[in-house]
Amino acid sequence: MKYIVLDMKRFSIFIFFLYVSVSFSQSKNEKEERIPLSEFPKVARNYFNEFSHQLKYLKLYRETDGEKHSFEAKFKIKKLYYSIEFDTMGKLEDIEIVIKEKYIPKTTLLEISTYFDTNFKKTRLLKIQKQYVNYTKQPDKTFIHHIVKHPNDTHTHFEIIAEVKTNNIHELKEFTFDKDGKFKASRKVTSSSYEHALY
């Protein structure tokens, strides 16, 4: 019996550290560093040439989020703020465009609002983005150019940064919903990545 109890204690400790590990991996802890074009993935450097005359405030970043490394280009075109993320090899990960709540379709917004009302006592939306992932057979460069020319095309997800309250706990979290407003995932935004998350 003593041996079994000892094993249960070890098992409990293992589960605790596993939980902590999973919780940590589900936190948004991004850090970014401004970089010159020469340090951006070579394959993606010329992706913006076709619409460079329209660009405003183009800024390039190297990002780390835990063990994940990526690169991001941020810019403005026709009053829309874009962020385009690539992996370390220059493969497109996603395109995001900042929007206002009023531009979310009513039925989709109702679905999102229902999720927040059901799970939290209070919610304040701080940043909303339409997210596009290239599930097509188009090359990344072609897909990027298409979205820039047609920003109202059907997107794949919504990404929302929100301040939520449960009991007496306030948290800043990042939520992902599909294009119809169905909840997909969430993770906590750490204080170290607060400003970066909202930009």
Rank of each mutant, 00 (worst) to 15 (best):
Y132V: 02
I97L: 11
Q26T: 14
Q26S: 04
L80V: 02
V22M: 09
D140R: 07
H170Q: 15
K141E: 08
K121S: 05
T107Y: 13
R45G: 02
I112H: 00
N152P: 12
S186V: 00
E85F: 02
N168D: 07
T136I: 06
G90S: 13
Y82N: 01
Q129E: 15
F183D: 03
E85Q: 11
N134I: 02
Y81E: 10
F16P: 03
F17R: 13
E85I: 01
P41D: 00
I104Y: 02
S27C: 15
V22F: 12
I35C: 04
A197H: 14
F183V: 10
K28H: 14
N152T: 08
E63R: 11
Y194N: 01
K91V: 09
K31Y: 04
K122R: 08
G90Y: 07
H69C: 08
N119V: 03
Y82I: 07
K137C: 06
T142R: 15
Y57H: 08
K68D: 12
S12C: 06
A73L: 03
Y47A: 02
D94H: 08
E50R: 06
Y199C: 14
I84C: 03
Q129Y: 04
N46G: 07
I84S: 05
N134W: 00
R124C: 07
K182L: 08
T190A: 01
E32H: 08
K78E: 13
Y194L: 15
R34Y: 07
Y19S: 13
K68L: 10
I104G: 05
N168T: 13
I4M: 03
S83T: 05
E85V: 08
I77P: 05
Q131K: 06
H155I: 07
Y132C: 04
V98A: 05
I128T: 15
E171W: 09
L172I: 11
K106V: 09
K122I: 06
S70Q: 04
S25W: 02
Y132F: 10
T154C: 10
S52I: 01
K76H: 12
I99E: 01
G90D: 09
S186T: 11
M8Q: 12
Y199E: 15
E159Y: 08
E195H: 14
H196L: 15
S25M: 13
S27L: 02
T136P: 10
K31I: 10
N46K: 08
E93S: 03
F24E: 03
F24R: 12
Y3Q: 13
P41Y: 10
I104W: 01
K91M: 02
P36H: 13
F40A: 01
K9C: 09
Q138L: 11
K28A: 14
L55C: 10
S191R: 14
S70E: 02
I84H: 01
E96F: 11
I15C: 14
H146L: 11
K173Y: 06
N29K: 07
P36Q: 12
F48K: 05
S27A: 12
F116Y: 08
K102A: 08
E101W: 10
Q54K: 09
K74D: 04
P36D: 07
K165H: 09
T118M: 09
K102P: 05
L198C: 11
K188A: 12
S113W: 01
